[in-house]
Amino acid sequence: MTKKLIIVDWGTTSFRAWLLEAETGTILSEITEGKGMRALHRSEFSAYAKSQLDGWRADSEETIPVYLAGMVGAPQGWQQAPQPPLPMRGEELVRDIVPVADMADTYIIPGVRQSGQPQDADVIRGEEVQIFGAMASLGRQSGLVCLPGTHSKWCEMQEGVFTRFHTSMTGEVYEVMSKHSILGLMADPSADFDSDGFEKGLGQVEGEGGLLNHLFKARARVLYGDLEQSQTASFLSGMLIGAEIRAMRDIYECEGREILLVCADRLAKPYSHALSHLGLSSRHISSKDATLAGVRALAALHGVNSK
């Protein structure tokens, strides 16, 4: 087994990389603020990756393998990796790992997709490693994982098998509504989290009328109700996160289950608040820790399967 490992999470807007001790997971060095793919032309991906990682490799007597996850494997990425259908074990996922043609000992981890009826189609690229990582870090084979973000994912593992998932466009809708709609005249996305405004948003979506009706309440309640303009962003966040959780609660029968929140601290706070408000329990695992644990586990399986 190789002594060191390089893990890269390369997305549309970010590039993060870690040099690890493969066996222990100890971080030896890291890059936290590299260029996302959107900042580069596709013809520049190879040269940029080498410029970021070759220093680590040059300082080592052994060849250090590189494993990449995220949108780097999308059709518009560096090199396309497949999205095999669920259900899926880690041992099965690594069979579709793709070697990068123009960088030695470098591999892209595939995403996954949900098939079945046309209306059930869904895709993941990047979060799959975090799901396996969350389970591995807790020593579990089964569980329910929520990955908040631009496109929030709710995913279920049963006896080591990734069985199903659903995507909610919560983060993207929040950004669009707060910046490009009439609510943007009132909402300040950079405002501090306001628990009272957030609670009012959670309560709003419990009433009748549906989400499209509730969204306009952010304006009406500021004009003639009980909402301060400074609370608008938190109110909007509460409505969207509340609507997401209420929908997923019914699909995944969440009562009595611990929901694993895999995300950054800034997202763990509102999601854990909303889950508690709805009587659901949760545990937070950082997205970084889940990514590293997941890629390490998959890289180990890939190394065994490649022999």
Rank of each mutant, 00 (worst) to 15 (best):
A104D: 15
R296W: 07
E62D: 14
D9L: 00
F193Y: 15
F15N: 04
V304W: 05
L260H: 04
Q83C: 14
H41E: 14
G203I: 09
A74I: 02
V222K: 01
W154L: 06
I6E: 01
V94E: 04
T163M: 08
G294P: 00
I124Y: 07
C263G: 03
S43H: 13
Y271V: 03
G70I: 01
A274I: 11
E30H: 12
S230Q: 14
W154Q: 10
H180E: 13
S181R: 04
G149L: 06
M37E: 10
V173M: 14
A243F: 10
L280K: 03
K3L: 12
L292Q: 07
K179N: 15
E61C: 08
F162L: 14
Q130S: 10
E44F: 03
S306K: 12
S306T: 06
L215T: 00
A218Y: 03
V8I: 13
Q158T: 13
E33C: 07
L236V: 10
S51F: 05
T150L: 10
L5H: 01
L86P: 03
E159V: 02
I245H: 11
E128I: 12
I285H: 04
G279A: 01
W10G: 01
G11V: 04
H166W: 12
S276K: 15
D122V: 06
H277G: 11
V8D: 06
T291Y: 01
E172K: 06
G201P: 06
Q52N: 08
G25Y: 08
R257N: 08
D194T: 05
A121E: 10
L5A: 02
H180A: 13
L86F: 09
H41P: 10
S234Y: 07
T170F: 04
A290L: 11
A247K: 08
T232A: 15
G73M: 09
S137Q: 11
Q117I: 10
P110Q: 02
G207K: 11
L5T: 03
L227I: 09
E44W: 05
L40H: 04
G149F: 10
R249N: 14
D196G: 11
G149Y: 07
T232D: 02
C254R: 07
E92R: 13
G184A: 05
S237Q: 13
E21D: 15
G70P: 01
T170G: 07
S142P: 12
Q130D: 04
E91K: 10
F216W: 07
M177F: 14
H151L: 12
K269M: 13
H214E: 09
G184Q: 09
E255S: 09
D120M: 11
Y107S: 09
R42D: 02
Q119F: 11
L20K: 11
G203K: 12
A274R: 05
D120R: 12
Q119T: 11
T26M: 12
G133K: 00
G207L: 01
T170E: 06
H277R: 14
H302M: 08
V8E: 02
P99W: 06
K269Y: 09
K217R: 13
P82W: 07
K288G: 08
I124N: 03
L292F: 11
D102W: 08
G133C: 02
G203H: 12
L68P: 09
P99Y: 07
R283K: 14
P148F: 04
Q229G: 00
I6M: 02
Y48F: 09
P82A: 15
I109K: 02
E159R: 10
